[in-house]
């Protein structure tokens, strides 16, 4: 699964994107975040406060209970500050 990071989430994790093989049982965004937090201390720090994280799947905003598929492009980022 392709996972993208933006803004300070990207800075804390130390990379803009990665290809991740999702373990069995990781079926939604919440479980994916829990799994990613086990990968490196940077992941755990970046994704610790879920109130500061938003998720998108295939370039659409989603809630954390949204299911995930291996072919999805998943993105994590802080609250948006455009305009």
């Amino acid at each position: 699964m392709k996972i993208l990071y933006f803004a300070w989430v990207k800075a804390r994790i130390g990379q803009a994107e990665e290809e991740v093989v999702i373990p069995p049982g990781v079926t939604d965004v919440t479980r994916l975040i829990r799994y990613l937090c086990t990968r490196t201390p940077g992941h755990a720090a970046a994704l610790a406060d879920l109130s500061m994280i938003q998720a998108a799947i295939n370039r659409e905003h989603v809630s954390f209970d949204h299911p995930i598929n291996p072919t999805d492009e998943v993105a994590f980022f802080p609250p948006i500050t455009g305009g």
Binding site: F6, A7, I80, T81, G82, G83
Partner: peptide
């Protein structure tokens, strides 16, 4: 735009 389009300053 301010809450939906993924831009960060």
């Amino acid at each position: 735009l301010k809450t939906r389009v993924p831009f960060w300053k």
